[in-house]
Design a binder for these strands. Structure first.
Length: 272
DNA sequence: AAAACTGCCAACCGCCCTTGG
DNA sequence: ACCAAGGGCGGTTGGCAGTTT
């Protein structure tokens, strides 16, 4: 099916929004809600396509939009989440209240990416994957392993930062220890939701020149009542952390890696 | 002072996914 | 099961503002 371009209809305005248009859109949505975006501009009396209205509302007019520069904590969260999620801007935005995917994407491309590149160049020995990957093996494997030294990237982070805003109430947590190569499954509702990575992954990952190999395998347990903590203070001291993933990883679980947390001697990964 | 360059960001585009008939 | 419509997402771009030459 080939969809006609959204603004194909003649007479629809494009480009920057005027103040009056903003006012019309805002007051209409406040009164009636957005309902059907395609129908909205007509009902509101705007010469815009619904898609444009939706974007304008979501990225700019929404009352809960946070204005102003990103804080250090927000930037660190973006960097960390991007390392885990890749270019899933909406998923990253979901963890930063008041920030939009578009804004985060812009900040990444114009600021954070360069910063990371700089930081990497200053560490000639560090090799970082250009695109984070997570691979899941066949469902029979029970070993979950982690590699890729995230600490390489966060060595310079301010580890005194306070907690992030993310609510942990509906997360389940994954604890990553570092010894026995066993999954404790008693707390896992369904093992089908667990990402499982087998040994072959590491050899595959090693094919990618830029993907560091694994130095140790990890014990992963899951529980539902662990607190979400942030940031990830000094965890590189004890744990060679990695996460390589690809889009297939989302299947059936929509991603359980959220934020890494260090608690005493373990690392937690939290689901969202 | 002005032209050239660079960076930033709002907005657009096109594809994919979901939903409902 | 199929199709169409709507919504959502990520990539890209155009234009403006700031900086450099």
């Amino acid at each position: 099916m080939v969809r006609a371009p959204c603004c194909e209809k003649m007479g629809l305005k494009k480009g920057p929004w005027a103040t009056e248009e903003d006012q019309i859109l805002t007051s209409y949505i406040q009164k009636h809600g957005h309902g059907n975006w395609r129908a909205l501009p007509k009902q509101a009396g705007l010469l815009r396509c619904g898609k444009s209205c939706r974007l304008r509302w979501i990225n700019y007019l929404r009352p809960d939009i946070k204005r102003g520069n990103f804080t250090i904590e927000e930037e660190e969260t973006i960097i960390k989440l991007h390392e885990m999620l890749g270019n899933r801007w909406s998923a990253i935005a979901a963890k930063l209240p008041g920030r939009t995917d578009n804004e985060i994407k812009n900040v990444w491309h114009t600021n954070l990416k360069k910063r990371l590149l700089k930081s990497d160049q200053s560490k000639p020995s560090s090799k970082r994957a250009t695109k984070p990957k997570i691979k899941r093996s066949d469902s029979n494997s029970s070993i979950i392993t982690q590699s890729e030294p995230a600490h390489l990237r966060f060595r310079e982070m301010d580890t005194t930062s306070t907690a992030c805003n993310t609510s942990s109430s509906d997360f389940s947590s994954v604890t990553v220890g570092d010894s026995k190569n066993i999954i404790k499954s008693e707390d896992i509702e369904s093992m089908e939701t667990m990402p499982v990575i087998d040994e072959s992954f590491w050899s595959e990952a090693a094919i990618d020149d830029e993907t560091p190999t694994m130095s140790s395998q990890s014990l992963i347990t899951i529980s539902n009542d662990m607190p979400l903590q942030y940031p990830f203070a000094n965890y590189e001291e004890t744990f060679q952390q990695s996460h390589a993933y690809d889009s297939n990883f989302d299947d059936g679980m929509d991603f359980w890696y959220d934020i890494f947390t260090r608690t005493n001697d373990s690392i937690e990964l939290s689901e969202f």
